[in-house]
Nucleic acid binder design. Structure first.
Lengths: 344, 344
DNA sequence: CGTCAACATGACAACGTTGACTAGTTCACC
DNA sequence: GGTGAACTAGTCAACGTTGTCATGTTGACG
């Protein structure tokens, strides 16, 4: 009833401990017939290798850490789900590690984490993943990790990463707005330390430039990825002299704030002002009207990051076609009612 | 530079391995002078016991699982943070386990989890924690766990738990509405399998009864803990013949949906209809107007649950005043603008 | 048919920790 | 001063797995 060990498997399969071990780790030097016997015994006993023992014994480890410093719970939960799914498939265990980049020495903290918890590697989510000071230091210390970052192409540098092409997606959103006839489109930035903010801005700028629409400095406002920040900046913009006909918020929270601002000023959305967000969060669906946005499948991205980490760590472990190292993800435009009117 | 082991500590402290082990597990049979020497050596080497080895060797384990089946990311992240903080203080590692109560045999799934990951116990969050079929079966299998549940008093039964007195808090919210002059207060329920829904309704009903306000069946609507469900039910209510003057949503999402419904019908909040929610989620803060709600400190609750689990598991591990087994939490009324007007 | 490489399997120690048991030390009390 | 309980500390094996090395088995080729 309790735990079946490698010993039990060996007895049932009538081979030695070591042979079972070999099968589990799919080492090549096992005869096919033997391998089959062992696999049947494993099946029969519902054997699963013991993580503690594995981690203890070898240089290898079957545990990874997920590091994040992201205030958005929707994002965090999706990333967790994705990584966890990959962990289950690959037989790894996951140690979550929310942290605060502001306090203390993150590099030290993560090094300790890896050492004390015997982690094989880390999956690092933005924005920490985009802080070169941190990632460089981790690299120097010989810690294995995969980053999830925002970039328009695979970043240079040795450390493997999965990148989200926010720029291309933001281009699509801005393009959509321009095609609706808008030529005065405000852009509300997120925190500077999130690369996604800068990338999305570049996509926005590129779309305007390609259409010959001037980028006006007074229509690009700094701030943070929050409802309040969106509300405040939109209020300022919409009660100013030259009101934009569209507002592109760097994420849905900002856009939701902008929407609330527009409403509180008695403006009609999308009639008086169109609003678009980014991320396809619940905010965008639940808003009245629902917000045009860009959908990123965070779970898939995170899962892929984990796969990538393991394929770096132990290439032979990736048996199947898991080896397709897809590393670029482009969020998809989702047009909703908040931009569904021709600009006047 | 790498990992210090118990052996290193023993060498530095000039004692045997076993004595160091004793100090770590604060067993009583160590002379004070020796203990001090060892502690100093531990300090000096920045020694931390190896989880893998500990788990492997003994019957004991220093890993716990956090089980949840809750769709609300804000809730999930807060629970994680709380449990994780307790884990750090107590030297445990955490294995998160989101699951889907619908699919498959949860009891089997959790049993396997505990066995395969050598977990000492589980912290179970609602709503699974409130499914007696599941918890009874786990108890029978000898699995240790602590539940976080919604109840107005410590539930009977052997398994330890931390309970949130939603009833008392909902009473306070309803009482607040009545004191504002409302006598036709609608109540929008959440999913039935969340006890919190039933508990909050009981608090609402008690408040009405104590004030001699009749509870009208047509003002109590079933549904789910979601924005959409709130929107739909509130739309029906507010466009009906006898419009309530206040709506109490079973959580903030429902309330936010109700708020959106009221606005879309051209009603003024709180002038035409007051709206209150529950949980003090970001929805309630960001709404226009901000929603009156009840704040539960989910993190504290989760942390306490973890503490309780460990104190069951190994009483002697709780050295300090950690032994205060606080297990009741009462969310606190937070009055905001959405109810800040006298009923007409 | 003998030889050697290539392949397939096994024996054994070790990872870091703790449980069971043993041995030495202290101290109260007859 | 002797006795044994109570206290303190140490030795050794074991947890489940894998790395190292040794051994056994096959088959190709001269």
């Amino acid at each position: 009833m309790s735990k079946a060990t490698i010993k039990d498997v060996a007895r049932v399969a009538e081979v030695s401990l070591k042979t079972v071990s070999r099968v589990i780790n799919n080492e090549p030097t096992v005869k096919e017939a033997t391998r089959k016997k062992v696999l049947e015994a494993i099946e029969e006993l519902r054997y699963q290798p013991d993580m503690s023992a594995r981690n203890l014994r070898g240089n290898k480890s079957y545990a990874v850490g997920l590091v994040y410093d992201n205030p958005n719970p929707y994002y965090v939960v999706d990333v967790q789900e994705g990584v966890l799914q990959a962990c289950r498939e690959l037989g790894y265990s996951l140690q979550i590690h929310p942290c605060d980049a502001e306090t203390g020495d993150i590099v030290e903290e993560l090094s300790d984490l890896v050492r004390n918890s015997r982690l094989a590697g880390l999956v690092i989510a933005p924005p920490i993943s985009e802080d070169d000071r941190v990632t460089d230091a981790l690299y120097e210390r010989g810690i294995h990790f995969v980053r999830i970052v925002s970039a328009s192409s695979a970043p240079a540098g040795a450390s493997p990463c999965v990148y989200v092409n926010d720029r291309a997606a933001a281009f699509a959103v801005a393009d959509h707005l321009i095609n609706k006839g808008h030529s005065n489109i405000a852009f509300l930035l997120g925190e500077e330390e999130h690369h996604s903010s800068g990338e999305r801005f570049k996509g926005y700028r590129k779309a305007l430039e390609e259409h010959g629409v001037p980028v006006r400095d007074d229509m690009v406002l700094e701030g943070s990825y929050s409802f309040d920040s969106g509300f405040q900046r939109a209020t300022a913009l919409l009660s100013g002299d030259t009101r934009p006909t569209a507002i592109f918020g760097c994420n849905d929270e900002i856009a939701a704030g902008a929407l609330a601002a527009a409403k509180s000023l008695g403006l009609n959305v999308p009639g008086d002002v169109a609003i678009a967000g980014f991320e396809n969060s619940p905010f965008s669906k639940q808003a009245q009207p629902p917000l045009t946005t860009a959908a990123q499948s965070i779970g898939d991205i995170a899962k892929q990051a984990m796969m990538l980490l393991v394929s770096e760590l132990r290439p032979q472990a990736m048996t199947d076609g898991n080896n397709d190292r897809k590393s670029e993800f482009i969020p998809e435009l989702i047009a909703r009612a908040s931009t569904d009117a021709e600009a006047r």
